[in-house]
């Protein structure tokens, strides 16, 4: 069972990004997904900067995958996409069908969670184009995954997000700019101030979503630490954690210990509040319920 670090969802200053991945080289993680996936206006790091980080991680023994932008509209975004797909060295995670088109029959790739892989027919199409791994879309759950693992083509690995705020939707509109009552083209890249996004609350103060530029995320992180045994039994190949600031090293280590059966899920859950600031999670999608639900039969808080 491999562990991966998904692509960074937030806009961090360059120094913070390079420092984060420098440390990640020492974490017990097998795969690192790199690149800007949310907004094309975030250009603190250019492709060459990402490739430098990739070199460093690769030298540390990590499998590096370059993730592509999710919503691709402008010609400039298409040329950047072309450069990533043509990089010639690292595998690419396709997050839009445009990326699948550019990689089709040319390079082996990962079909990211934003490719709508809801059935075996789609997995067959993607595999025939060169996909060697697929990441389960976030709104799917256990029983669908079970069937898809049984029906999927041989040689296609399965990856599931087990920790992190869920990217729930994308827009051409920037919601971070909107919160300050400015238009997207006057955004001044203000989302760089929100290292874990901006909380969106109901009028009753319930933490419902997280605003992250053009992306809306779940209000609380998805947490499947209590499901790791099941995921392993089902034959999932890779478990993904999504980068957050502050506590990734401890979180990655804890998941590694559970995967390696050095720590039980119950023990891990008892340890979590000491590690991280988040005290609330969701896992509803996994249980085929509203995604925001937290089903805690196994995981007592």
């Amino acid at each position: 069972m491999k562990l991966s670090l998904g692509p960074l969802q937030y806009f961090w200053p360059k120094k913070k990004v390079t420092g984060f991945y420098k440390r990640a080289a020492d974490w017990p993680i097998d795969i690192v997904y790199l690149g800007e996936v949310v907004c094309a206006k975030r250009r603190e790091l250019k492709l060459d900067d990402w490739l430098q980080i990739a070199e460093h991680l690769n030298a540390a023994g990590k499998e590096v995958v370059l993730s592509t932008l999710i919503l691709i509209e402008a010609d400039s975004e298409l040329s950047q996409l072309q450069k990533i797909c043509d990089n010639g060295r690292y595998r690419v995670e396709a997050n839009d069908m445009s990326a699948v088109h550019l990689l089709d029959g040319k390079s082996r790739f990962v079909a990211g969670p934003h490719i709508n892989s809801y059935n075996a027919g789609t997995l067959n199409v993607l595999h025939s184009c060169g996909a060697v791994r697929w990441v389960m879309p976030f709104e799917l759950g256990q029983s669908t995954l079970q069937r898809l693992i049984t029906q999927k083509p041989d040689g296609l690995e399965t990856e599931v997000l087990v920790y992190g705020r869920l990217p729930l939707s994308f827009s051409a509109r920037c919601f971070t700019a909107r919160a300050d009552n400015v238009a997207k083209d006057q955004c001044e890249l203000r989302c760089i101030s929100d290292e874990n996004g901006l909380p969106l609350q109901t009028q009753e103060g319930e933490q419902l979503f997280t605003v992250n530029g053009v992306q809306v995320q779940s209000g609380v992180p998805c947490n499947l630490i209590g499901e790791i045994d099941t995921l392993m039994e089902m034959g999932v190949d890779v478990l993904r954690l999504s980068p957050e600031t502050g506590y990734m090293a401890g979180l990655v280590t804890l998941f590694r210990e559970v995967v390696d059966q050095q720590c039980s899920a119950a023990e891990a859950v008892a340890l979590l509040p000491k590690l991280i600031t988040e005290q609330k999670w969701c896992n509803g999608f996994w249980h085929e319920q509203p995604g925001m639900n937290w089903e805690h039969k196994l995981v007592q808080l």
């Binding site: 994308f170 809306v216 999608f285 509203p290 995604g291």
Partner: peptide, 19 residues
């Protein structure tokens, strides 16, 4: 306002989405 086919806000809250 969201890209159609890529919005799970509804299923996050109700369990049912357009997809």
């Amino acid at each position: 306002v969201m890209v159609e086919g890529r919005c799970a806000l509804s299923s996050y809250v109700t369990g049912e989405s357009p997809n």
